[in-house]
């Protein structure tokens, strides 16, 4: 009984939110704008998608033996899937963001449940879903690669890790890095960076090959 009230409550919440959104812009345009923003990792767009969909996913996970931490994990994973998808440029919106995210989360959670324990291989649906198996699989492959990279960078140790992260990830200039790390000049920092890069590439490509096998 409480369960029904709980779900009805959630449903009303969604209704309210969607009414608000509808009040501002047309839903289709709105969604396209949001996805464009997401591709640029626009803070506002990310935030909007996040707050519009998270509660639904959380109730899905909670209804299926998950915790709120699981919900956060799964939802963020789905957001990354969506992010990768819009960035690839091949993504065409043939369903609502909500439906897509729900489907991905459902798929991800099902997989998680199967990994955690063998007794649950069903997820009680609270909404219709679209097939997202391929997307989830691609995402998982990428995740494996990124985790490999993460590990490789971690295994370099300091200062290599910070040096490489500063240059390649945070896109700092060599002058900034030299100043920040205390090198006498940018050239020395650059030399050091290349030494680290050679090591990283060695580790990464050996892992990459092993991983591909």
């Amino acid at each position: 009984m409480e369960n029904i009230f709980f779900q009805v409550g959630l449903g009303l919440l969604f209704l309210k939110i969607s009414i608000k959104i509808n009040g501002i812009v047309k839903p289709e345009n709105n969604e396209k704008t949001l996805l464009k923003g997401l591709a640029r990792s626009d803070k506002k767009a990310v935030e909007t998608i996040y707050k519009d969909n998270f509660n639904m996913i959380q109730s899905l996970i909670l209804n299926n033996n998950g915790s709120s931490d699981d919900a956060k994990d799964i939802f963020q994973e789905a957001m990354i899937v969506l992010y990768e998808k819009v960035r690839s440029g091949t993504f065409e919106l043939n369903c609502q963001i909500k439906t897509y995210l729900y489907s991905v989360c459902r798929r991800l959670w099902l997989k998680r449940l199967q990994q955690l324990s063998r007794y649950s291989n069903e997820v009680a649906d609270i909404q219709t879903s679209v097939p997202v198996e391929d997307d989830v699989e691609d995402h998982e492959k990428r995740n494996v690669e990124f985790e490999m990279m993460d590990k490789a960078i971690d295994s370099l140790g300091e200062p290599c890790r910070s040096l490489l992260e500063a240059y390649y990830l945070q896109k700092k200039t060599m002058q900034e890095i030299a100043a920040g790390f205390g090198y006498t000049n940018a050239d020395n920092a650059k030399t050091q960076k290349y030494k680290c890069l050679v090591r990283l590439k060695k580790i990464f490509f050996s892992q990459y090959k092993n991983g591909k096998q």
């Binding site: 998270f54 509660n55 959380q58 390649y168 990830l169 896109k171």
Partner: peptide, 29 residues
Amino acid sequence: QMNRFGEWKKFRSSLHDTHTRLAEQGKID
């Protein structure tokens, strides 16, 4: 690969920040 990794990491942390912020603002449960 590095670029994508960097963006992935950045997006990841931005999602985390978003979550914390939205939770603080009470916009998500």
